[in-house]
Design a protein around this nucleic acid. Sequence first.
DNA 1: AAACTGACTAATA
DNA 2: CTATTAGCCAGTT
Length: 119
Amino acid sequence: MTRQSAEGTHARIHAVVRRIPRGRVGSYGQVARLAGLASHARLVGYAMAALPDGTSVPWHRVVNAQGRVSARATPGADALQRVLLEREGIRFDASGRIELDRFGWRPRDRARRDARSRR
DNA sequence: AAACTGACTAATA
DNA sequence: CTATTAGCCAGTT
């Protein structure tokens, strides 16, 4: 984090991430698009990295387009993210991937949660 | 101001 | 299915 340079875009990104409901995950590209920053998927990652500890922004609900937790510089941080997600009921397959068909966030989402997803 | 970096993605192989 | 490549562009140095 630095100055106020990124504050504007970061704020928009954070606002979108805050809208991701518990038990769901959004992708960097998706968040960028919703924040009005199409093609700025990487900025979403930077905005996450800039978040302070104890932030109210649910950063852990943002994963990459493959449904995997992106590796980052800080060792162990990815493991923490996974734990936080599992705690919300999100499941990972043997290769560490999340089924986005089931857990992917959809802003217009219709309550398909009562269907039979999660567990 | 120029170069480098990267919590990304979609397209290829 | 996984691995590699090229495109991306704000943020950081």
